[in-house]
């Protein structure tokens, strides 16, 4: 039985999560973000209603960059608060949460009671985000979902000197022209992305344990390299890509209780 709904309209994907009265993750759905946010959200709501029963009167909390376009929402909350809430509920402890999204990465320091203590986000550049890999995957003719495995399988690694998405692409073209193989390039690309992320973690100061969320964590190379670069074991929640929407639903639940 769904008690509250969270919707996370991100730059790359849109997600919806339904939770029960105890805050348990009950139902979820994800698809690429549609620029017609309202239509997409309506479609999501119809779907959840069809599969889990009537949702009338239940709180809907929206988050993500498109949250202000969700007119069906009871409340709108930022991704920072929602991610912290979702991850804390699932893992039960604070620490440093790194969320690597499609166009936006964030590092959130979560206190012992689940509160946000500090945060930082990538600024004016998508180099530390999923879009960095997505852009270059096409260029290398490797499927996005295979990139991590391919990179990990490579023994060699080249240095991608520039961490700019656009310049990285031209650097890669030149490497291919010089006969460099795809695998070491891929490994170098992952390294470049991870170095950006680790610099962000360092800028706020790592408070262990280190937790990861966002679509990019499906990529095993990213996880492994973050561990290598920080020397910390990475903890993943159960549904890493849904933490924003899950946190939003939990915030909605609080509205029910009040």
């Amino acid at each position: 039985m769904i008690a509250s709904i969270g919707i996370d309209v991100g730059s790359t994907t849109a997600k919806i999560v339904g939770v029960d009265l105890e805050g348990k993750f009950v139902w979820s759905y994800i698809e690429p973000a549609d620029p017609r946010v309202e239509d997409q959200v309506q479609k999501f709501l119809n779907l959840i209603e069809k599969e889990t029963g009537p949702i009338e009167g239940k709180p809907i909390v929206a988050t993500g960059y498109g949250r202000n376009l969700v007119h069906q929402a009871t409340k709108k909350v930022t991704e920072i608060t929602c991610h912290a809430r979702g991850v804390f509920k699932q893992l039960g402890h604070g620490g440093t949460l790194v969320d690597i999204g499609g166009q936006d990465s964030k590092v959130i320091i979560i206190g012992p009671n689940g509160e946000v203590v500090d945060f930082t986000m990538n600024d004016k550049c998508a180099a530390g985000t999923g879009r960095f890999l997505e852009n270059t995957a096409g260029r290398l003719r490797v499927k996005l979902q295979d990139m991590g495995e391919v990179a990990l399988a490579s023994r060699d690694e080249v240095t991608i000197s520039s961490t700019c998405t656009v310049f990285a692409e031209s650097e890669i073209i030149s490497m291919i022209a010089h006969g460099v193989k795809v695998e070491p390039i891929l490994k170098g690309l992952h390294r470049a992305l991870v170095k950006r992320i680790v610099a962000m973690i360092r800028s706020v100061g790592l408070v262990p344990p280190l937790m990861l969320s966002g679509g990019v964590v499906k990529n095993p190379a990213i996880r492994k390299m973050i561990e290598e670069e920080t020397g910390e074991k990475v903890i993943l929640p159960d549904h890493p890509q849904f933490m924003g929407a899950y946190g939003a639903a939990l915030i909605g639940l609080k509205l029910v209780r009040n």
């Binding site: 930022t78 920072i80 608060t81 946000v116 945060f119 986000m121 600024d123 004016k124």
Partner: peptide
């Protein structure tokens, strides 16, 4: 050098952080 959406996202997150 001013990104509207990004500034809003940071400010709003900061305000939420102050409120809790």
């Amino acid at each position: 050098a001013f990104a509207d959406e990004q500034v809003k996202a940071r400010l709003e997150s900061f305000v939420e952080m102050l409120e809790t």
